[in-house]
Simulated assay, not measured.
Amino acid sequence: MVKLQLEPKAPLIECRLVDYSAGGACLEFAKPIQLPERFEMFHGNTRKRCRRVWSRGVRVGVSF
């Protein structure tokens, strides 16, 4: 599981990490979600600034 912060001081959203690489990740949600173009992802002790690059159903691709 990873957590996303969509805007400052907003509650964190949890999702499943499907795939992870040095340049990006595939995230999966329980239901389709509309993400902003940019947000932050927390994975363990790692914090990444993400950019949404694609969305298909409950999966979203991001780049770092």
Rank of each mutant, 00 (worst) to 15 (best):
E37F: 03
E28N: 10
E7S: 12
I13T: 13
R51P: 02
L12S: 06
V60L: 12
R47N: 03
G24S: 01
F39H: 01
R59Y: 05
W54G: 02
A30N: 13
I33N: 10
K48W: 11
S63D: 04
A10L: 13
K3V: 09
E28W: 04
V53A: 04
F39Y: 09
H43W: 13
C50I: 03
Y20G: 00
A22N: 13
L6H: 07
V2N: 03
F39G: 02
R59D: 05
E7V: 04
S55W: 05
N45H: 12
K48G: 00
S55F: 08
F64P: 01
L4W: 14
V62E: 01
R52S: 05
L4K: 11
R49K: 09
Q34M: 12
C15V: 06
R56A: 14
R47L: 15
R47C: 12
D19R: 10
E37H: 10
F39R: 07
T46D: 15
G57Y: 06
W54Q: 00
E7K: 11
K9R: 11
R59W: 10
R51K: 15
C50M: 06
A30I: 12
L12R: 08
P11M: 08
P11C: 04
A22T: 07
F29S: 12
S21G: 14
V53D: 01
R38C: 13
A25G: 05
L35H: 07
R49C: 09
F64E: 00
V62L: 07
R56K: 14
C50A: 13
D19I: 02
I33Y: 04
G24Q: 00
L35S: 06
F29W: 14
L6G: 02
M1Y: 06
K48H: 10
R52L: 15
A25R: 11
C15K: 03
H43K: 05
D19A: 15
P32H: 00
Q34F: 11
L12E: 14
R47Y: 04
L35W: 04
K9L: 14
C26K: 15
L4N: 07
D19M: 03
R51L: 04
